[in-house]
Simulated assay, not measured.
Amino acid sequence: MSENIRVMVVDDNQLLRFGLLGAIDMEPGLEAAGDASSSEEAVELYQKMKPDIVTMDYRMPGEDGVACTEKIMAIDPDAKVILFSVFESEEEVWKAVQAGVKGYLTKSASAVEDVMEAIHEVAEGYSFFPASIARKISARKQQEELTPRELELLQMLGQGTSNKELVEYFNISMSTVKHHITNIREKLGAADRTQAVVIAYKKGILKLDEE
Rank of each mutant, 00 (worst) to 15 (best):
S2G: 04
S2D: 14
N4C: 04
V7N: 11
M8F: 05
M8H: 02
V10C: 05
D12V: 03
D12H: 04
Q14N: 07
L15H: 12
L15W: 03
L16S: 13
R17A: 02
G19F: 07
L20V: 13
G22Y: 06
I24V: 14
D25T: 00
D25S: 06
E27W: 03
P28G: 09
E31M: 15
A33L: 13
A33Y: 06
G34F: 07
S39Q: 04
S39K: 07
E40M: 08
A42E: 02
V43M: 07
E44L: 14
E44A: 14
K48V: 14
K48W: 08
M49G: 06
M49T: 14
K50E: 10
T55E: 05
R59I: 13
R59W: 13
R59S: 13
V66A: 03
C68V: 03
C68R: 02
T69R: 00
T69M: 01
I72A: 01
I72N: 04
M73L: 09
I75M: 11
I75D: 00
P77L: 10
V81W: 01
I82A: 06
L83S: 02
L83F: 01
S85I: 14
E88F: 01
E91W: 13
E92P: 00
V93R: 04
A96Y: 06
A96S: 11
V97L: 08
K102N: 01
T106H: 13
K107G: 00
K107V: 06
S108D: 08
A109Q: 12
V112L: 14
M116L: 12
I119S: 05
I119V: 14
I119A: 02
E121Y: 09
G125P: 02
Y126W: 07
Y126A: 09
F128Q: 01
P130N: 10
A131M: 12
A134N: 03
I137A: 09
K141C: 06
Q142H: 10
Q142I: 06
Q142K: 13
Q143R: 15
E145F: 07
T147F: 10
P148D: 08
P148C: 10
R149A: 10
L151C: 04
Q155I: 05
Q155A: 13
M156A: 12
G158M: 04
G158R: 08
T161R: 07
E165K: 08
V167N: 04
Y169E: 11
F170D: 05
I172E: 08
S173A: 14
S175H: 08
V177W: 03
K178Q: 14
T182A: 15
E186I: 03
K187Y: 03
K187A: 00
L188C: 12
A191H: 10
D192A: 01
T194P: 00
A196V: 03
V197R: 03
I199P: 02
I199D: 00
I199N: 05
K203Y: 15
G204H: 03
G204P: 02
K207M: 00
L208C: 00
L208V: 15
D209L: 09
E211V: 14
